[in-house]
């Protein structure tokens, strides 16, 4: 589904990604872990098409297409979804309007009829249950005045509505208490299907108790230092990141 080869990317003059290669197949859950400043979030943003990051080398192929050639909105319409680490507040645009606009754009791209507000409300009733939210939040402005937990749940709600093929969760666990974490993780698990894939970007192993990864990759200093199964996450939890960095330094 997603094939990243030797990807390099800059912010301004600073190189953040220094050659990332990663293959994600349908039905898989990949965790990308690493210390702060390792480039985890950059990788997530580059996949989503953030204009602030400049891809300087490598390729990203998504469903056989050149992903880097697509605008951010086209990527979303084609089934890529980024759950933001810091969801953006948009005062003045209701969540319901925003969600329906996004839903209809994605439907249009899939050659489906747009839905009207009444039909959409029926769809929302189901989706809200996934993240244990009530419909009063539909009338509120997008993320505006939301608590940290509400914002993250709203991200998963959007994911539930848009039904992406490839979801990238960028530090979705940061700032969440254990209840919110459980709701968010269970939401993600409910949305898991054999034909979609998830990349979970996280600093801590905690989230991976709920969303069990098939693969764990450790990213540091812009490179993947090690890949392994879910047991790698536990090892990191136990030993921290330093031993890996030292090993990498010694071998370099």
């Amino acid at each position: 589904m997603l094939k990243i080869e030797n990807l390099t990317a800059n912010v301004g003059d600073k190189q953040i990604l220094k050659g990332i290669s990663l293959t994600v197949n349908a039905g898989e859950v990949h965790a990308i872990m690493g210390p702060n400043g390792s480039g985890k979030s950059t990788l997530a943003q580059v996949i989503a098409g953030h204009p602030g990051y400049e891809v300087t080398g490598g390729t990203v192929t998504y469903d056989g297409q050149d992903l880097l050639d697509m605008d951010a909105e086209v990527r979303a319409q084609q089934g890529i979804f980024l759950a933001f680490q810091y969801p953006v507040e948009i005062p003045g645009v209701s969540n319901a309007y925003f969600l329906r606009a996004a839903y209809n754009e994605v439907r249009k791209a899939r050659g489906l009829e747009e839905v009207d507000p009444m039909e959409f409300l029926d769809i929302m009733t189901e989706k809200l249950k996934i993240v244990e939210m009530t419909d009063d939040m539909l009338q509120r402005s997008v993320n505006f005045g939301f608590s940290g937990g509400e914002k993250k749940r709203n991200e998963i709600l959007q994911m539930a509505v848009l039904e992406p093929k490839l979801a990238v969760l960028d530090e979705t666990d940061s700032g969440l208490d254990i209840d919110a974490l459980r709701i968010v993780a269970e939401g993600v698990n409910k949305l898991k299907r054999p034909d979609n894939a998830t990349i979970v970007v996280t600093h801590y192993q905690r989230l991976l108790n709920y969303i069990v990864p098939d693969y764990v990759h450790v990213l540091a200093q812009g490179r993947i230092l090690r890949s392994g199964g879910k047991e790698l996450a536990l090892e990191l939890e136990e030993r921290g990141y330093d031993w890996l960095l030292e090993t990498a330094g010694a071998s370099a």
């Binding site: 098409g49 951010a72 909105e73 969801p87 953006v88 003045g92 645009v93 754009e105 791209a109 848009l162």
Partner: peptide, 24 residues
């Protein structure tokens, strides 16, 4: 960018944000 990342195209995103500014 947030709107684009949800599939809402650039022109429409600008229009919605402009409208949102006025809504208050």
């Amino acid at each position: 960018f947030y709107m684009k990342s949800r599939g809402i195209g650039g022109e429409r995103a600008r229009a919605l944000l402009t409208y949102a500014f006025a809504a208050e």
